[in-house]
C-alpha cells in the first residue's frame, strides 16, 4: 500500500501533467474536509467558508509545484486556508472567531478523556472535535470509520464502495483506527 503522503505527491505530479482524473481526485478528496475546516473557523458562516475555500484552492493550485510532500496534501491546504481566513477577516476589518481556542478548553479535554459526556455543550464540542479529527485523517480513513462505526456498513460493502478487495478494506480500517487513535490521543494528551 502506498504511503498517503507519497500518494499525495504522486497525485500532485499527475495534476501538474494535466491529468483530469487527478484533479477530480484532488478536489473530491479534499474539498469537504477543507470546507468543514473553514466552516468551523468562520463560526458556521457558510458564505465565508465558501469564499475562503475557493480562494484557498485557487492559491494552492497556483503553488502546486512547491508541494514537497513533507505533510499530507490536506494539511498543506489547511495551512493556506488558515492564511485565507485571516485575510478574509482582515479585509472586512473583523477579528476571526477564536474557534481553535475553544477546542483547547479544559472541559473539552476532560470530555475527551470520558467518552460518555452528558453536558450537551461539551458533547457538541466533543462531536465537533471528533469530526475534525476524521476530516484530518489521510484519504478515505475518515470515510471508512464513519461508514463502519456510524452508518454500520459491513466491511464487504465498504470494499465494494471503494472498489477494493474485502481484505484491503479490512486493512484500511485497521490503519484508519490506528490513525484516529493517534490523532485523538495527541489532542487529548
Amino acid at each position: 500500500m502506498t504511503e498517503p503522503i507519497h500518494a499525495d505527491r504522486f497525485l500532485v505530479q499527475r495534476m501538474l501533467r494535466g491529468d483530469e482524473a487527478a484533479f477530480a481526485e484532488f478536489f473530491d478528496g479534499n474539498f469537504a474536509p477543507l470546507y468543514r475546516f473553514a466552516l468551523r473557523r468562520t463560526n458556521g458562516d457558510a458564505d465565508a467558508a465558501e469564499e475562503v475555500v475557493q480562494t484557498t484552492l485557487c492559491a494552492a493550485i497556483r503553488k502546486l509545484a512547491t508541494f514537497r510532500g513533507e505533510a499530507s496534501l490536506l494539511a498543506w491546504l489547511m495551512t493556506f486556508c488558515r492564511h485565507e481566513i485571516s485575510a478574509y477577516y482582515r479585509s472586512r476589518q473583523r477579528v476571526p472567531p477564536l474557534v481553535e481556542l475553544k477546542e483547547d478548553l479544559p472541559e473539552i479535554q476532560a470530555a475527551m478523556a470520558s467518552i460518555s459526556a452528558d453536558d450537551p455543550l461539551v458533547r457538541k464540542e466533543l462531536a465537533s472535535r471528533i469530526q475534525s479529527i476524521l476530516d484530518s485523517l489521510p484519504s478515505h480513513y475518515g470515510d471508512v470509520l464513519e461508514w463502519k462505526y456510524i452508518d454500520g456498513i459491513s466491511v464487504l460493502a465498504i470494499a465494494e464502495r471503494l472498489g477494493i478487495s474485502a481484505k484491503a478494506a479490512e486493512s484500511m480500517l485497521t490503519r484508519a483506527r490506528v490513525a484516529f487513535r493517534d490523532a485523538f490521543a495527541a489532542v487529548g494528551a
Partner: peptide
C-alpha cells in the same frame, strides 16, 4: 471506537451547489 464516533455522528454533508460552484 463505535461509541465515540456515534457521539460525533456523521460529518455534515456539504451542499452540492457549493461543491459545484467551487469545483
Amino acid at each position: 471506537l463505535a461509541a465515540l464516533l456515534k457521539v460525533a455522528g456523521p460529518r455534515p454533508a456539504v451542499d452540492a451547489e457549493v461543491v459545484r460552484r467551487v469545483r
